[in-house]
Design a protein around this nucleic acid. Sequence first.
DNA 1: ATGCAGTCTCGAGTAGCTGGAGAGTCAAGA
DNA 2: TCTTGACTCTCCAGCTACTCGAGACTGCAT
Lengths: 271, 271
Amino acid sequence: MYRIGEFSKICRVPVSALRYYSDLGLLPPVSIDPTSGYRYYEVAQLPRLNRILALKDLGLSLDEIGSILNNELSAAELRGMLRLKQAEMSRAVAEQQAQLARVESRLRMIESEDNMPEYEIVLKDVDAMHVASLREVLDNLQEVGSMIADGYGALMPAGIMPTGPCFTIYHDPEFNPEAADVEIAFPVGDTVAEAPDTPAGRHFAIRDIPGAKAAVLVHQGPYDTISQAYVAIGEWLEANELRVAGPPQEAYLTAPDDPSGPITELRFPVA
Amino acid sequence: MYRIGEFSKICRVPVSALRYYSDLGLLPPVSIDPTSGYRYYEVAQLPRLNRILALKDLGLSLDEIGSILNNELSAAELRGMLRLKQAEMSRAVAEQQAQLARVESRLRMIESEDNMPEYEIVLKDVDAMHVASLREVLDNLQEVGSMIADGYGALMPAGIMPTGPCFTIYHDPEFNPEAADVEIAFPVGDTVAEAPDTPAGRHFAIRDIPGAKAAVLVHQGPYDTISQAYVAIGEWLEANELRVAGPPQEAYLTAPDDPSGPITELRFPVA
DNA sequence: ATGCAGTCTCGAGTAGCTGGAGAGTCAAGA
DNA sequence: TCTTGACTCTCCAGCTACTCGAGACTGCAT
């Protein structure tokens, strides 16, 4: 019979943890003095304690360990749980490694530039959207502005309120300013199934854009400096070993008359 | 000006998190209606929010991010912090991978045996000890018992109380029952600098055993079945790709007359 | 006027402990 | 027998970065 401190030395587990396990009923002391409340342990409890530690080390929660120790779980169930943990952990490892890679690339960046980067690029889950869109091959990207106005000019009178800021999708595999395959999308309610032609005679397509993970960057300032943002996001993707998995999007988050100037969000879907 | 829900859609950050950042002062809304308490945001806050998310993704705490955003930290300090995080994270990644390997080896084990393993093996930090020890080359391991008794026979009368259970250290690079280089160690107080010779005329060495990480296993049952435990720990070390980094120890945790039978702890230092 | 979706604050919960406060206990020395 | 000091007890708070729920209020559309 050892008091908790001695037992703690023997098993090399902190006293506080032993008390915690005792309270949870995971490792009840062999006896508790009813007057003093002192917990008394025996060396014979070491195998059980080691089982607890071993199972904990496998990533199981104390709750789950309790079930296992009380034989509430069959071997098959334990196997299933472990397989689940395994999948979960390999995902976690991959995620951790990616995060470490991001830290390293960031370090390299600030050590070469010796200051904070101009843009912050973040991975986000962009969820699925139902959109009304106009797709055209343009020989002049200036036209995008008038196409947007044209689109709103059709949707608003028809009572179709966009549910979010409109954005363009650049379908070209490589940038070609003389024949740019551009889609302008207006997010609309899920129930919208058709839209009238625009004042300029364009025809809407209604489609779903699936959700995806995307590298997202916010560009604040005049649109004609946005190429810097493309450079930054390209470098970032390369540094983080991510591959582009779809056409990039540019969302126009501000109204044309916003006092803080135009704000554009770049989204590159990644695998 | 957007209400929190709309802004949440734009930035793809949950409302609860935005409120949390607002309470922490990390991303205060541009205005708060004094009567309703409604928070109002603007698109121009997206860059700051993305900075928060990017820094968070680098493993910084919200506290640290707050300092950075308020310019309380120089670029050099940020670099230092990131380097620290980097070291910490690569350690964490390695640890996670090792844990994943343990899960996988455990899965393989229970899938081949189709039941729970007999022993639970755990990595523990064994801390440094000051010991009085007897080292000898024995041609018969049975003698260990009498050596232990001999040791106690010298220490107790001299008023040197062992501070923990005694243990043997097997110094042989490979097991040799005809000439086993065995050290029997009695943990004693740090102040002990010498001990008298034993009744049988053996001479104590007083030394420090450095702390180390060790694979630990508890064997409950008669000593002559302990070879199973050695097999188990050997398999475990192999499955977890750990290398032995010192002579193994066997600690005798029970008194000879303990009703629960002998309990032995095996410790293999690992790198 | 009435819904109803959105928002507010506040408090609790998460996992696995760790640390502290304040009180009681045990064994040895004076 | 008393004291001292090490140990132990219970209970509560804190850690991180939120999330969830209760109960009350607001804003907008019918």
